[in-house]
């Protein structure tokens, strides 16, 4: 009984080499199909080996080198251009980011400054800097001051800001009436 046909790999190995595996040789002796396959491949190999291609002129290789040199110069130029474009795009992106974020930071700064100016604006002058105090002190006579048991300055100093504001406002109103 005939064994299975040779695989393409086995047939190729036999075609390319005079010495094949023994069992494959034995198979070839009894299998016409595989013998033809191996013979065709071997003939194909011999035919293929025995062929030349036209050799270009020696000048061709030099011309080819020059042509490639020009191509590579162009490629280098494109690379440089791409690098500059990348740099320009990066710079543009950074500038755009700054342009977008700058108002936000400036706005934050303004808010901070606004808070600071509210503090400066809203508080009444510090007690010692209040120009109305000397006038108030002149208006009050010493006896009255002693009668209430404290000096106006120390009285005002222990008041809270809100109390200072209310008292100062009341005094102004009173002074306005007296004038």
């Amino acid at each position: 009984m005939k064994s299975r046909h040779l695989s393409d790999e086995q047939a190729l190995d036999l075609a390319m080499s005079e010495a094949g595996l023994d069992e494959n040789h034995a198979h070839l002796e009894e299998c016409d199909v595989c013998r033809d396959r191996v013979r065709h491949a071997r003939d194909g190999w011999r035919l293929a080996v025995d062929t030349d291609i036209p050799e270009p002129s020696p000048l061709y290789w030099e011309a080819s080198k020059r042509r490639l040199g020009r191509e590579l110069d162009a490629e280098d130029a494109r690379r440089r251009q791409r690098r500059w474009l990348t740099l320009a795009a990066t710079a543009a992106a950074i500038l755009a980011t700054i342009a977008i974020l700058a108002p936000v930071f400036v706005g934050l700064g303004r808010d901070q400054r606004a808070e600071t100016s509210v503090d400066a604006w809203s508080a009444l002058p510090r007690v010692e800097d209040d120009p109305s105090l000397p006038m108030i002190e002149r208006m009050l006579d010493v006896e009255t001051e002693h009668a209430i048991g404290c000096c106006l300055g120390s009285c005002v100093l222990v008041l809270s800001d809100e109390e200072v504001r209310v008292v100062s406002e009341s005094l102004r109103v009173e002074m306005g009436r007296s004038l």
């Binding site: 393409d8 790999e9 047939a11 190729l12 190995d13 065709h40 491949a41 194909g44 190999w45």
Partner: peptide, 19 residues
């Protein structure tokens, strides 16, 4: 490698047939 060898085998037999 198996596919490469099979390709070569078919190339050689086809070449012979074409010629």
């Amino acid at each position: 490698i198996g596919t490469a060898k099979a390709n070569l085998f078919h190339a050689l037999t086809n070449l012979k047939r074409l010629l």
